[in-house]
């Protein structure tokens, strides 16, 4: 009895408040779900069209009927998509190997070895991240043209063997957060600095290394500007991004096959994402950390 009267007073105040809070939460979830659905719709439309016959794609039907898996075989038959995929894989793969070999040591030197000029080096890294790629394009193109390497993959891959500013920055940010204890213990045990870098700190930096490799691979896989510049004139080395921009006009095909080609281009990335989701999200967070 008394407890009821004691707890009664606050009730009228908390109840509407609670209800308002629940209502607000429901509304917020509803907004999120609606927007999320809108985000997925273009993907759904693209995949649906990729499975339609060409007449059906023109009628504006939204559901493929019958489902035409042959489109994907047709895509590979119409254009050397396999060659584009292999070229892109070669480009992105080699570039990522080069990035890791050159950028991890540089990031290690900047984050974990004390030397005069490490701040200046960081400023250079940040400046390189701030300069748009088109600014540097003309002289680099001239350089590669003089070396007679335009129309090969070399101009696309080689720069990655000499450090990539974004990866250096990402790795540096992570290396700063690793405590010194393990490395010091290893040094006391007579482990050289090089081995500390590779096996002690390297092992602890695995998430960041994975993220840097993923982002590097992706940005090469997706890139258009540089491939267009250097191999745009030589279809033997076309990457999938160039191939796709040319696919519709060059092969005079319909939207259904164009969308199937788009799916072929995108699917490997989506699969990669579901296998390495954590590395992606952690990496995205790392890039958000301030310098």
């Amino acid at each position: 009895m008394t407890t009821v009267t004691l707890t009664a007073p606050p009730r009228p105040r908390t109840r509407p408040r609670m209800r308002r809070r629940v209502l607000a939460a429901v509304a917020e979830h509803a907004v999120l779900i609606a927007l999320g659905a809108m985000f997925l719709i273009p993907l759904v439309f693209v995949v649906a069209t990729a499975l339609m016959s060409d007449q059906q794609a023109l009628t504006g039907a939204l559901v493929p009927h019958p489902v035409r898996w042959r489109n994907f075989a047709d895509v590979f038959a119409q254009a050397p998509i396999l060659r584009y995929l292999l070229n892109t894989l070669l480009y992105a793969g080699l570039a990522t190997v080069g990035m890791l070999l050159s950028s991890y040591p540089a990031a290690y030197a900047m984050a974990r070895i004390r030397w005069r000029g490490s701040t200046a080096a960081l400023i250079v890294v940040l400046a390189m991240m701030m300069v748009p790629q088109q600014v540097l394009a003309v002289p680099l193109y001239v350089m590669w043209a003089k070396l007679h390497l335009v129309a090969t993959l070399v101009p696309l891959v080689a720069p990655f063997f000499f450090g990539n500013a974004f990866s250096v920055f990402l790795l540096r940010q992570f290396l700063l957060t690793i405590p010194d204890d393990y490395a010091d213990a290893a040094r006391v045990d007579g482990c050289g600095e090089f081995r500390v870098m590779v096996s002690i700190v390297g092992r602890m930096a695995k998430p960041a290394i994975a993220a840097a490799c993923l982002f590097n691979f992706l940005s090469c896989w997706n890139s258009l500007f540089n491939p267009l510049l250097y191999v745009g004139g030589n279809p033997t080395w076309w990457t999938i991004s160039i191939g796709l921009t040319q696919f519709k006009s060059l092969h005079a095909v319909n939207w259904n096959l164009t969308m199937a080609a788009t799916v072929v281009f995108t699917l490997p990335i989506i699969v990669l994402f579901f296998f390495a989701q954590r590395a992606f999200v952690e990496g995205a967070n790392l890039t958000g950390i301030k310098g």
Partner: peptide, 22 residues
């Protein structure tokens, strides 16, 4: 939801632009 919102940013820009054109 985070995956749903993140996924489109992974699609290659060229592919995304092609998809949107259609």
């Amino acid at each position: 939801l985070r995956t749903v919102f993140y996924l489109p940013s992974l699609t290659p820009l060229v592919a995304a632009a092609m998809g949107f054109l259609y």
